[in-house]
């Protein structure tokens, strides 16, 4: 087993499933209610009978009351497509441990739960563009392949979430759950690309990974901060005032992300020194268990 998932965490994940707020049409039978009508035991609705319909589905009791032929329709149960969009830009290589490790752990946990629940899981690493994905797969036997794929991801390049989303949509994926795992430090912003996903009937869930130093910079002298992606340099004196100004901006950014997610009914979780990965992931999955 990969170091991405420790046994204790796996035990916590065992009884959980992916939380989804909307229904998606799956590609094959599964355990989730679909937007389609199917053959499950759960009644969905009536509709008028038309010639050629299966006469076994006629609701004769309704006919007795209404003297009209109507069919009983039942909810279909299909699988769910889980897309793991994992940020592998250079900024994820920063931190102790590097933020990319946290991102991989989040992706591994979600992928584990998805595969265990017979969902179709695919991984899409991205930076300023979209890398070759791990093809959609299902079944708990594919967990090993998933972890190996995640292990191989190395941080590099810039971040361009908008371009990533456009290229992702260009692959014409089936609508489903999109887990975006990133630090979201994208100069182009996050709202437009996430809006694009929503518009295309996807449900994004947002996992923000941060390093301790990003959350609470260590005070110091005059330093030259170098952007790991763009190389841009900012001269700053790391005194209390500067750190306070930075944290004000940081928390404003958190609030912006949180507000965005809340308004759209999306999950937003932050994994950092103050929010343990286990708690954030389990907190999300427990929404699906309810």
């Amino acid at each position: 087993m990969s170091s991405l998932l420790d046994p204790a965490f796996l035990r916590r994940l065992g009884r959980l499933r992916l939380a989804v707020r909307r229904r998606f049409a799956g590609s094959s039978a599964g355990g989730r209610r679909s937007t389609r009508r199917g053959s499950s035991a759960e009644f969905a609705e009536h509709r008028p009978y038309y010639a050629g319909d299966d006469v076994r589905r006629i609701d004769w009791n309704a006919y007795a009351r209404l003297e009209e032929l109507v069919l009983r329709l039942f909810v279909a149960e299909e699988d769910l497509s889980l897309y793991l969009l994992i940020d592998r830009s250079a900024s994820l290589g920063i931190g102790t441990p590097p933020k990319i490790e946290l991102a991989k752990q989040v992706a591994a946990a979600l992928g584990y739960v998805g595969l265990s629940g017979s969902e179709r899981v695919s991984v899409h690493p991205f930076g300023d563009a979209l890398d070759a994905p791990m093809a959609p797969t299902r079944g708990s036997k594919r967990i090993g392949a998933l972890l190996r794929y995640l292990d191989a991801i190395e941080p590099r390049g810039d971040t361009d979430l908008a371009n990533t989303v456009e290229r992702f949509l260009a692959r014409s994926p089936r609508p489903g759950l999109v887990a975006v795992i990133s630090d979201f430090f994208d100069p182009g912003g996050f709202q437009r690309p996430l809006d694009r996903l929503l518009a295309q009937k996807f449900e994004p869930v947002l996992f923000q990974v941060l390093d301790r130093e990003e959350l609470d910079p260590t005070p110091g002298t005059d330093v030259e901060l170098v952007d790991s992606e763009t190389g841009q340099k900012v001269d700053v004196s790391l005194d209390a005032r500067a750190i306070a100004a930075y944290r004000a901006r940081l928390f404003a950014f958190f609030a912006e992300l949180e507000s965005y997610a809340k308004k759209r009914g999306l999950f937003y979780g932050r994994v950092d020194a103050e929010h343990a990965l286990d708690d954030v992931v389990v907190g999300y999955l427990r929404q699906g268990a309810r």
């Binding site: 900024s91 994820l92 920063i94 931190g95 933020k99 630090d183 430090f185 100069p187 390093d211 130093e213 990003e214 110091g220 002298t221 005059d222 330093v223 030259e224 901060l225 170098v226 952007d227 790991s228 992606e229 763009t230 841009q232 340099k233 900012v234 001269d235 930075y246 901006r249 940081l250 950014f253």
Partner: peptide
């Protein structure tokens, strides 16, 4: 100045 690489200088 001491150069310090950070994930992003955006904020």
């Amino acid at each position: 100045r001491e150069a310090r690489v950070v994930g992003s200088t955006l904020l």
